[in-house]
Measured scan of single mutants.
Amino acid sequence: NMTTNERRVIVPADPTLWSTDHVRQWLEWAVKEYGLPDVNILLFQNIDGKELCKMTKDDFQRLTPSYNADILLSHLHYLRE
Rank of each mutant, 00 (worst) to 15 (best):
N1Q: 11
N1P: 05
N1E: 10
N1V: 05
N1L: 10
N1C: 09
M2L: 10
M2A: 03
M2D: 05
M2V: 03
T3E: 09
T3S: 14
T3Y: 06
N5C: 11
E6Q: 12
R7M: 13
R7S: 09
R7Y: 07
R7W: 09
R7K: 12
R7E: 14
R8H: 07
R8L: 04
V9I: 10
V9C: 13
V9H: 13
V9N: 14
V9G: 15
I10T: 15
I10S: 15
I10W: 08
V11G: 13
V11L: 14
V11Q: 11
V11E: 14
V11A: 15
P12F: 02
P12A: 05
P12R: 04
P12K: 05
A13L: 09
A13Q: 15
D14F: 03
D14E: 03
P15Y: 04
P15R: 01
P15M: 02
T16W: 07
T16K: 09
L17C: 13
L17F: 04
L17D: 14
W18A: 01
W18N: 00
W18T: 00
W18M: 02
W18I: 00
S19H: 05
S19D: 11
S19G: 06
S19F: 01
T20Y: 04
D21L: 07
D21M: 08
H22T: 03
H22I: 02
V23N: 02
R24Y: 05
R24I: 06
R24C: 09
Q25D: 09
Q25K: 11
Q25P: 00
W26G: 00
W26L: 01
W26Y: 12
W26V: 01
L27R: 00
L27E: 00
E28R: 08
E28C: 10
E28P: 02
E28A: 11
E28I: 07
W29I: 09
W29K: 13
A30P: 00
A30R: 03
A30H: 07
V31W: 03
K32G: 07
K32M: 12
E33I: 05
Y34R: 05
Y34P: 02
Y34A: 05
Y34C: 05
G35H: 14
G35S: 12
L36I: 09
L36A: 02
L36D: 03
P37T: 14
P37A: 12
P37I: 15
P37K: 14
D38W: 03
D38Y: 04
D38R: 06
D38I: 01
V39Q: 05
V39L: 14
V39H: 05
V39S: 07
V39Y: 04
N40M: 03
N40V: 03
I41V: 11
I41F: 11
L42R: 14
L42Q: 12
L42P: 13
L43E: 10
L43C: 14
L43N: 10
L43D: 11
L43V: 08
L43Q: 13
F44N: 09
F44P: 03
F44G: 03
Q45M: 08
Q45E: 13
Q45T: 06
Q45W: 04
Q45S: 11
Q45F: 04
N46E: 13
I47W: 02
I47P: 00
I47D: 01
D48G: 07
D48T: 13
D48L: 02
D48A: 06
D48C: 08
G49K: 00
G49R: 01
G49Y: 00
G49I: 00
K50N: 13
K50C: 12
K50S: 09
K50Y: 07
K50G: 08
E51T: 13
E51N: 08
E51A: 12
E51F: 04
L52E: 03
L52Y: 00
L52C: 00
L52D: 02
L52N: 00
C53V: 10
C53N: 04
C53P: 00
K54R: 09
K54I: 03
K54S: 14
M55N: 03
T56A: 07
T56G: 13
K57Y: 02
D58K: 09
D58Y: 12
D58A: 13
D58C: 06
D58V: 08
D59E: 08
F60D: 01
F60S: 02
F60V: 08
F60I: 14
Q61T: 15
Q61S: 10
Q61N: 09
Q61F: 10
Q61Y: 09
Q61C: 10
Q61W: 07
R62E: 08
L63D: 01
L63S: 02
L63P: 02
T64F: 13
T64D: 13
P65S: 13
P65T: 12
P65D: 14
S66Q: 11
S66F: 10
S66N: 15
Y67H: 13
Y67S: 14
Y67R: 11
N68I: 08
N68W: 03
N68F: 02
A69S: 03
A69P: 07
D70M: 04
D70A: 05
D70N: 06
D70H: 11
D70L: 04
D70S: 07
I71E: 06
I71T: 13
I71M: 14
I71S: 06
I71Y: 04
I71W: 04
L72D: 00
L72T: 02
L72E: 01
L73R: 10
S74Y: 11
S74T: 14
S74I: 03
S74K: 14
S74P: 03
H75L: 03
H75D: 15
H75Y: 07
H75S: 11
H75E: 06
L76Y: 01
L76P: 00
H77P: 02
H77Y: 04
H77Q: 08
Y78D: 15
Y78S: 15
Y78A: 15
Y78W: 05
Y78C: 13
L79Y: 03
R80Q: 14
R80F: 12
R80E: 06
R80S: 07
E81I: 06
E81R: 10
